[in-house]
């Protein structure tokens, strides 16, 4: 079971209509993040933001293959995964603005956002924190004979945490229905991959645990989709887990405010040429005859949707200070939170 490279996209299964749908989803992530950065600069978002810009094809390619019963765990860089899964940008903005109408009623913010209806079990403030939790969901699916699959997104940096290694071993041992999706954007915070691990491919770790590891161009939404199909089928058939490594790049700093001076200019420029939205738009034009108007429509639909979402989120009420005392336990005991 050596790690292998996913086929570059032939795009056979993607029609113009489907392609525009995928592009729209990626564009929604891109513009959501760009607007969020602006809104943070305007003072509407009090906490951290780790923008997903540049990695959109990874989330969209993976999520497009999943079924409603499947569940996901995510990271500090979770907005893309959440939108990829179909979350409502209005409720996401409301959460970023710390409003009651937000996904977590203002208790979580970017780092802890969830959508239980979508099986989105949460962003996570702890690097590697979501991996064992996805493993646990997969265990429960296996125990109950469900055909649902769990997906855990995490970064190259997170693959150095013990939680990754422990869960990989258990998942292979028990043939759990899970996809480990390592989004390798070449950096963990300010540290290059070559300074935090010897291997070039995180996927090479998979065979050591007895599962397939696949490397795929994470900026190619169709290629990501193809390898995901294989891995999901394998998981649903009871054949066990797969590690998919999507090679990608974040266009911005680690968090909003990080100038990312630790990255060589040439490297950034090289990856900007491989912007997943740019390359996929070009592909749609040349291979699927998408017109300029088709592409412009995608952009304007996205922008309209986001402006409506932002306006709605701004209207939402702030929580009351005392709301801090709710939700400590499912059943609160009197006054316990107060003293």
């Amino acid at each position: 079971m050596n790690s292998s490279t996913g086929s570059t996209s032939t795009g056979i299964s993607v029609t113009l209509e489907k392609g525009l749908e995928l592009l729209e989803r990626m564009m929604l992530i891109r513009r959501f993040e760009e607007r969020a950065a602006q809104l943070r600069a305007e003072g509407l978002i009090p906490g951290f933001l780790h923008p997903y810009i540049g990695q959109e094809a990874s989330a969209v390619g993976i999520c497009d293959v999943l079924s409603p019963q499947d569940v996901l765990t995510s990271t500090h860089r979770g907005h893309g995964h959440m939108i990829g899964r179909g979350a409502d940008p209005a409720r996401m903005y409301a959460e970023l603005f710390a409003r009651v109408g937000g996904y977590n009623q203002g208790k979580g913010g970017s780092l802890h956002m969830i959508d239980t209806e979508l099986g989105f079990l949460g962003a996570n403030g702890i690097v590697g924190g979501g991996i064992p939790i996805a493993g646990g969901a997969a265990l429960q699916f296996k125990r109950t004979g469900s055909d649902a699959v769990a997906v855990s997104f995490f970064g190259d940096g997170a693959s150095n945490e013990g939680s990754f290694h422990e869960t990989m071993n258990m998942a292979a041992l028990w043939k759990l229905p899970i996809l480990f999706v390592c989004e390798n954007n070449l950096y963990g915070e300010f540290t290059r991959q070559s300074e935090h691990m010897v291997l070039k491919d995180v996927a090479d770790r998979a065979p050591a645990y007895g599962m397939p590891g696949v490397v795929v161009d994470g900026n190619d939404v169709i290629a990501v989709r193809e390898v995901t199909k294989v891995a999901v089928e394998r998981a649903r058939n009871g054949d066990g887990p797969t590690l998919i490594e999507t090679k990608t790049y974040r266009h911005r700093g680690h968090f909003e405010g990080d100038m990312a001076k630790y990255r060589p200019k040439e490297e950034v420029e090289e990856w900007m040429k491989r912007d997943p939205l740019l390359t996929f738009s070009t592909w749609l034009s040349t291979e699927r005859d998408a017109s300029k108007a088709d592409l412009a429509d995608v952009r304007s639909r996205v922008d309209t949707r986001l402006e409506v979402a932002i306006a709605w989120a701004k209207e939402q009420a702030h929580p009351l200070a005392e709301d801090a005392l709710n939700h400590v336990y499912v059943e609160s005991f009197n006054g316990e939170a107060l003293r």
């Binding site: 710390a98 929580p319 009351l320 709301d323 801090a324």
Partner: peptide
């Protein structure tokens, strides 16, 4: 107070 720390500034305070 005996709660996790909430995100919203007003609750955090």
């Amino acid at each position: 107070r005996n709660t996790p720390i909430p995100y919203a500034p007003i609750m955090e305070k």
